[in-house]
Amino acid sequence: MKPLDEIQKRLLSEVAGLHAIPEGAYNIRANGTSAGRASTANIEIIPREDGKGLTIKVKPGTKNESIHIPVVMTQSGLKEVVYNDFYIGEGADVFIVAGCGIDNCGPQDSEHDGIHRFYVGKGAKVRYVEKHYGSGDGRGKRILNPGTEVYQEEDSSVEMEMVQIKGVDDTNRVTKAELAKGARLVVRERLMTHGDQKALSTYTVEMNGEGSSSDVVSRSVARDNSYQKFDAVLTGNAPCTGHTECDAIIMDNGRILAVPGLEANDVDAALVHEAAIGKIAGDQIIKLMTLGLTESEAEEQIVNGFLK
C-alpha cells in the first residue's frame, strides 16, 4: 500500500471530506489499487479476487456505523470498472460515503465506472453520499459512469445524496431501484456542468410493495455549452406514492432535457412529477445587485445557493 500524495489527499477531501484516516470501516482506492483498508467487528470489507472492487457486509442490527470507500485517480489514461456490492443486514443503520475524484493533467482520458449494488435487508436504514469531482488541465477527459442498483426489502429506507459540481467531463449515471412493502427511497441529486461537459442521469424506480414510497429530486445547473439529460421513470406496481422533480437552471448556451416518466399499474399508486427549467429569475439578480453585487457575482451566489 502506497502512501497518498498531495493531489490525492486534496481529491480525498473534496469527495469524502476526509483529511485523515476515517473512523469505522473504510477502503481508499488510489490509481487502481488499495491505499488503505479496515473492517470493523460489524462491517467486513472483502476485496474481490479479480481486484476490481469490494464486497461489503454489514451485520444485522449494526447501528450508527460508517463506511468510507472513496476513489482517487491521478494517473492520466487510467480506465477502470469497479464493482462494489453492499449487503446490509436486517435492522442495520449505516452511513456510507463513496465518491470519486479524478485529477487528469495528461493527454489521455481517465475513466472510472463504479457499479454499486445495494442489498438492503428488512427494516435497515442506509444514508449514502456520493460526490464526484474532477480537476487538472490536461487534454484528457475525466469520465465517470456510476451505476447504482438498489434492492430494498420490507420497511427499509435508503437516502442517497449524489453531488457532481465540478470538473467531470462526461457522466452517464444509471440508477435502478426495486422497493418491497413499506420501503422508502429518497434521492437528492445536485449537478453542475460547464464547458463542453455532458451529463446523463437515468433513474428507474419500481415500487413493488404496498406502502412503498420514492422521492427523486434533481437540482441542476448547465452553463457554457454543456448538456444534461435527466430521465426519471417511477413505476407503481402496488399502492404506493412516488414523486420526481427536476429543477434546473440554464445559463449561457447550456441545454437540458428533462424526461420525467410515470407508470401506474395499480389504481392506488399515486405518482407525481414536476419539472422546471429556466434561466435565473431576473428579479433575483436585481435584488442582489441592489445589495452591491455585480451581475456575475449575483449569478454565482444564486447558483451556489441553489446547489447547496
Binding site: 429543477d247 433575483q284 435584488k287 441592489t290 453585487l293 444564486i302 445557493g305 441553489f306
Partner: peptide
C-alpha cells in the same frame, strides 16, 4: 443598479424576491 448600490442607495422591494437555497443569513 450595482454602481448605485455601491454609491449608497438601498432599496426594499414592494414584493420581496424569493430564492431557492439562499438563506436569510446569506
Amino acid at each position: 443598479v450595482t454602481e448605485r448600490a455601491r454609491r449608497g442607495i438601498g432599496f426594499a422591494f414592494q414584493q420581496p424576491v424569493r430564492f431557492k437555497g439562499i438563506e436569510v443569513f446569506d
